[in-house]
Design a protein around this nucleic acid. Sequence first.
DNA 1: TTCTCTAACTTGTTATAACAAGTTGTTGTT
DNA 2: AACAACAACTTGTTATAACAAGTTAGAGAA
Lengths: 251, 251
Amino acid sequence: MINDSTSRPLQYRYLYEVLRRQITQGEFKAGDLLPSEKDLYLQYKLTKPTIRQALSLLVQDGYIRKHQGKGSIVKPLPLGLGVMSIVGRLVDTATVETDEPADHAQQIISTQVLVPPHLSDFPANILFIPPEDDLKNQFYYLERLRSVNGEPVFFEKLILPSQHLPGLADLSFENRSLFELLRTVYNIVVQGGEQKLLATTATEPLARLLGVPQTSPVLRLDKRVDTNNNDFSYYSSLYARTDHFLLHGRF
Amino acid sequence: MINDSTSRPLQYRYLYEVLRRQITQGEFKAGDLLPSEKDLYLQYKLTKPTIRQALSLLVQDGYIRKHQGKGSIVKPLPLGLGVMSIVGRLVDTATVETDEPADHAQQIISTQVLVPPHLSDFPANILFIPPEDDLKNQFYYLERLRSVNGEPVFFEKLILPSQHLPGLADLSFENRSLFELLRTVYNIVVQGGEQKLLATTATEPLARLLGVPQTSPVLRLDKRVDTNNNDFSYYSSLYARTDHFLLHGRF
DNA sequence: TTCTCTAACTTGTTATAACAAGTTGTTGTT
DNA sequence: AACAACAACTTGTTATAACAAGTTAGAGAA
């Protein structure tokens, strides 16, 4: 039952995907004006409500900004992708550099899967608990360590409901965004969720993984992510060192 | 030029405010079904696009969840309000409590204004810098300390562009949400923004403010918040202790 | 009683239409 | 040359309409 809503193509979603791809692949660059609603009508033969719905999605996802009387302006792409992405940290919190630091310098993000996806019960020590009914089911559990330019930056646990994801264990998580995978392969899109944030100190195994002293402060971010499928939510727990890099997000 | 768009009442926004008030004031409780689109049509004499636009706003702001064929379901209210709110922390991160902890227990959030709003240049040590043009203007700067049940939890610096906010210094910031105030008094609504997150250790003055030892980890959250007014963005820098409470957000 | 199917709800998608309102460049006047 | 007014764009708001699709409860058959 993959992609069961492709039966009727959902035109506004189709247009969204087209424009989104054009933006992410650089066909439209930050600051550019998207074709006007009228142009899109002429090009795609879709009517105003449909086009507006597609553009609304792009606004919601932070790809464009609309300006009455002017047009739809493409926003700069989020750097890493995901709800929160990483950014090179300003040299010293006590001083603000006037000239932009090398935020946009080449950041090679690599992902190392420490524990490959396998079936398990819902793990302990997660700040969210699924509803009782879901606890009976099994979950895919995996752990990965993400590095920027070879330096470990954050350690992440992912817990996904298994019954909606046939064949997940076969797919590569290495260099693909989880969001991308869920949307394109399983037709599941993120619609919202909850997150809990706190600052702790690195415990021994974590400190070794991230390569920081045991006492250093570490950011912890737990999430429950809800999707268009009402009984599909996944969970993640993330530990990040933020001495050289910090978490960056749009909302 | 306050509330200049009240000239034409913007019916979908009006309906949004009505429903939103009914939800926040408990007239509709979590789990309730909102009146159907048809009922709203009968009651308010607004047509489907208008009603749907109002409901979409409520969805976007996390007040309701829509379910095709069923209706619009009221979601539980966010606890504190703001982009991120506070929540009582689970007793120990090493153990997950099966029974819900007292998250929803009475939390009396009080706000103490340490530095009342006054005109100043854009301060140093903020992780966001306004565009050069805006730096020429003056800003309202204020500092406040927010406590839960009398215990200091986070310290916040707020920087607001002064030219759009006549008479701001006269308004009380004490027990009113900044969002609420901007929306109702100045007709400015938050549309998005950026945030940067990191974990640090408390320095001496901060440690004293929050009542924590100097070495304890502290969460820092800097934001640039964009609004419907294109040249109105405000900035905030927040330091939170997360040993007894943690930050909680919806997205 | 239990099950199945249907009718009557609900929201979702798309089309057409008319006017309001913000932006920008151009035209024409001073 | 500077300015004002306008025309031609843009998106925003609201109305009307028809059909698709998910949900639910009740009627009727087994």
